[in-house]
Design a protein around this nucleic acid. Structure first.
Length: 846
RNA sequence: GGGCGCGUAGCUCAGCGGGAGAGCGCUUGCUUCACACGCAAGAGGUCGUAGGUUCAAAUCCUGCCGCGCCCACCA
């Protein structure tokens, strides 16, 4: 045993970080059976995003659970992944290298990003595979920053199993999953109205949409009826009047009943539109009669579909108003000249500018009723977008989702949620789904669809019969690879082929993290041992995306849940309880905190937060963690530095302490088993402080030999038994300091030691009374209080202490009198029977 | 509009049917031989609010107020 003179927590982290790595402490041993394995579906962090304290919290939660399971006897499968897909990376690469992606270009094997010619500073067009390579260069740096943090935090992951969502295996898994869904008709292609971001110029899915409150303007507009007379509608989007294809009223609405089936004329454009009835029309809103445009919102799409209305699109993919097409088929007007004139006024304008312009035109023509009124209303945005979403018809890939809603709700009920109430979010999301999952994106950095389309004689693609890549060829990039039976020269030529230009939604890949990490279809042996996994840890903000899509994919592909437990961490809010965000400038970065207080201290703070609970960031809690860490070090030094032979635990006080400890083990184990790590920490910590403040003080003198060798041996044995247990109980929370202390006197890693059980203390603690320690500590406390109130040192000698208490308590004091007198420096200890507990202390005169 | 969660000491949070708690902060002491990155003591709360159930309610039920979030609507 080698116990340092002045133990310190400084410098422990690099030492143990390296030893764990070289010893393979957290290596996954795949020879273990499924029942012995605990598999974690680790969240791959978005590496191009910023690192904040929230990462420390949620990843610590996962690690604490993993470490408990490992000590409890499970072989933990705990890989790390990096999510490098997505728009943020794409944007950074464009700016950093001065390039733009052109999927029609062939791959350039010799592209040197540093030697690109950029005449006039224009971005250089590169092929998709080249663009993806450049993304890889940048994300590699980001990954290093995260890995540095996670290693410092002592996440007990097996770093040899790390994956990235853009790496070859992930692309292969994504494409394989897609092809398998396609052959089972669970994914399909459709030319349909979809939510569309006009800045990113891509379709987006329902899950990526958020509402934002913005300013708008209501315009009351007059529509002339074909049969004479007119009706008024109210709209916040008058620029869509040229896209109006019908008016709609509620079938129950008496006011408009006789209008149904008649026709109206759109103002300025003179298009003849029917008045239809639909239950979704709300008599309470606006004037009770609304215009149906192609397309203003998702309700328009429903009306349009249910009434088989024509399509008249005026908003283009870049968000501007389309040029005039009046007079052409589908664009009939009572007054084509006027319609063309009006359209010319709007063509090319953004929707916001077109809105202002058409309001002027409506006012001039007398169709605007009253003045436009400003309102605040919620509008749908792409979560990363800056302008409201439009609904645009385009060809997209969809995964069937709507028809599985009930089954997916059932899956959600099979899953063990921690905390339980997070299931409600999942259910309300699933029940509110209104479209299938749009998985195609008109972007570049991502996993391409492994399909091509044959071109007919006129060079038109045949979307009905895509040419699929064979699974053995995956991953493929259809912009560079050639479908079977064709040659590279036939790309784009009539009778030849084209590749699908789109990439998949990043969630299409992320939803396969169990399959990627478990090497689905690539390593059947591993897959059989880890799937379905045991744990999905994640934040509540991505229940509707990551969690939902993973459940969906697993349900469709494997007819099972992907995991049995979901542990949902809360958010770390700023001290004002606001969400941390880069734009608010209130983001707390974790590395400086780790450097100041140590990783164990930061982990202590993180683990103190319960699952699902949002926590306001409070640096003082990390300081508490640092105190605890140092305390563990010093208390351990004390327990181990006493030169006394081990012996048998015989003393009442020692046995009482061990009995309390045994109960603490039970509580902590139950808490951990119920995924309540915060409680496990709390009970362990509570015991530990009382162990230090009361028990250590009480046995100090005896341990030093004040009452002979046997009494000392009892104390020393009890101290060491308790220390062994406490180090293991703190192990999941404070991996560095516990490992350090463990190394002073034990072989191997504390993190591979068995989780303590009540049974291992059974012999020493059998029949012991847990109350002994409390009764004794209460008396000691009273004596200390008396000294403190008299401004004396706690070591000050007490001439006489009289305890009044119930007979059973006095019997306890009798048994521990020697320890108590030593700890309190008490000359004479006397007892009197009485109902009310009281202690009378007489100090020695100075 | 529907749903979920939360409102307990100045702060961060436990407790969830029978004593109102912890840590931080504050005040006052103590150089005690593991630790001054320490130890001890003290002050501090009508447990959001109004009812109800109960012998007993911070804890269960109902209404209301406030905060946060999720979903839906958004003419």
């Amino acid at each position: 045993m080698t116990v340092p003179e002045k133990p310190t927590i400084e410098g422990l982290e690099p030492i143990w970080g390296e030893r764990w790595e070289s010893a393979g402490t957290y290596r996954f041993d795949r020879s273990r059976s499924r029942r012995e394995i605990y598999a974690v579906d680790t969240p791959p962090p978005t590496v191009s995003g910023y690192i904040h304290v929230g990462h420390v919290m949620s990843y610590t939660h996962t690690d604490v659970i993993a470490r408990f399971q490992r000590m409890a006897g499970k072989m933990v499968f705990y890989p790390m992944g990096w999510d490098d897909n997505g728009l943020p990376t794409e944007r950074r690469v464009q700016n950093h290298f001065g390039v733009r992606c052109d999927p029609s270009l062939p791959y350039d094997r010799d592209l040197d990003p540093d030697a690109l010619e950029r005449p006039n500073g224009e971005p250089v067009a590169v092929s998709r595979p080249n663009f993806v390579e450049l993304c890889g260069l940048l994300t590699a740096e980001d990954e290093r920053a995260f890995e540095e943090l996670f290693r410092r935090l002592a996440l007990s992951v097996d770093w040899s199993m790390t994956y990235a969502t853009i790496d070859e295996r992930s692309r292969r898994a994504s494409q394989r999953a897609f092809l398998r869904l396609l052959t089972r008709d669970l994914t399909y292609q459709a030319d349909a109205p979809t939510m569309w971001d006009v800045d990113f110029r891509t379709a987006v899915a329902q899950a990526e949409i958020e509402d934002r409150e913005v300013s708008g303007t209501y315009h009351r507009v007059n529509f002339e009826l074909e049969a004479g007379g007119s009706v008024e509608i109210e709209t916040s989007r008058p620029e869509l009047i040229p896209a109006c294809v019908a008016l709609v009223v509620n079938p129950e609405d008496e006011r408009f009943r006789e209008l149904v089936g008649k026709h109206a004329l759109t103002p300025l454009f003179g298009a003849r539109v029917p008045i239809v009835a639909h239950r979704l029309a709300d008599p309470e809103k606006g004037t009770g009669i609304a215009m149906i445009c192609t397309f203003g919102d998702m309700t328009d799409v429903i009306w349009w579909r249910d009434h088989s209305l024509p399509t008249r699109v005026v908003v283009q993919r870049d968000g501007t108003i389309a040029p005039r097409r009046w007079g052409q088929p589908g664009w009939e007007s009572k007054d084509v000249v006027a319609a063309i004139a009006a359209q010319s006024e709007l063509a090319g304008l953004s929707t916001t500018r077109a809105r202002k312009r058409i309001a002027e035109l409506l006012a001039q023509s007398g169709h605007l009723v009253g003045a436009p009124t400003p309102v605040r209303h919620a509008v749908k945005f792409y979560e990363r977008g800056e302008r409201p979403l439009e609904i645009i018809s385009s060809r997209q890939w969809f995964v069937k989702t709507l028809e599985f809603r009930e089954e997916l709700v059932k899956r959600g009920r099979e899953l063990h949620w921690h905390p339980e109430h997070m299931r409600a979010r999942y259910e309300s999301w699933v029940e509110g789904l209104n479209t299938d999952w749009c998985v195609s994106r008109q972007r570049f950095f991502g996993v391409p669809f492994p399909v091509w389309y044959a071109l007919d004689d006129r060079g038109e693609p045949d979307h009905e019969h895509p040419l699929l890549a064979a699974e053995e060829r995956l991953p493929v990039d259809p912009s560079s690879d050639v479908p079977e039976g064709f040659t590279a020269e036939q790309r784009g030529a009539p009778g030849g082929f084209v590749g699908d230009p789109d990439v998949m939604d990043t969630w299409a890949t992320s939803s396969l993290t169990p399959q990627i990490a478990g090497r689905w279809c690539e390593d059947d042996d591993l897959w059989g041992r880890v799937f379905p996994m045991d744990l999905r840890p994640q934040g509540h903000d991505i229940i509707r995306t990551w969690l939902f899509y993973t459940v969906l994919k697993s349900h469709l592909e494997h007819d099972s849940l992907p995991w049995t437990n979901a542990a949902i961490s809360g958010w770390v809010l700023d001290p004002e309880r606001k969400k941390m965000s880069k734009s608010k400038g209130n983001v707390v970065t974790p590395m400086p905190l780790l450097e100041r207080y140590g990783a164990d201290a930061a982990r202590y703070w993180a683990a103190s937060a319960r699952l699902g609970a949002d926590t306001a960031f409070d640096e003082s809690q990390i300081k508490v963690g640092r105190r605890l860490t140092i305390k563990v070090l010093n208390a351990s030094r004390f327990a181990l530095s006493i030169e006394a032979a081990d012996g048998v635990v015989t003393e009442t006080l020692d046995r009482s302490m061990l009995r309390q400890l045994a109960e603490t083990i039970g509580e902590a184990t139950r808490a951990f088993t119920a995924y309540d790590h915060a409680r496990a920490l709390e009970v362990t910590e509570r015991f530990f402080w009382s162990f230090c403040d009361d028990y250590l003080e009480l046995v100090k003198g005896r341990a030093y030999g004040g009452r002979g060798a046997d009494a000392a041996a009892s104390a020393v044995s009890a101290l060491r038994a308790a220390l062994s247990v406490l180090l293991r109980m703190f192990g999941p929370f404070l991996p560095y300091v516990t490992e350090e202390v463990w190394s002073w006197w034990r072989e191997g890693s504390v993190h591979l030691a068995p989780w303590p059980t009540e049974a291992e203390l059974a012999q020493a603690a059998a029949g012991a009374d847990p109350a002994v320690l409390d009764v004794t500590a209460a008396v000691l406390g009273e004596v200390r209080k008396f000294k403190a109130l008299n401004k004396q040192s706690l070591r000050a000698r007490a001439e006489r202490v009289v305890v009044r208490d119930k007979p059973d308590h006095l019997a306890i004091l009798e048994a521990v009198a020697a320890d108590l007198r030593e700890a309190g420096n008490i000359e004479r200890l006397e007892t009197i029977e009485g109902d009310a507990f009281a202690v009378e202390t007489t100090l020695a005169s100075a």
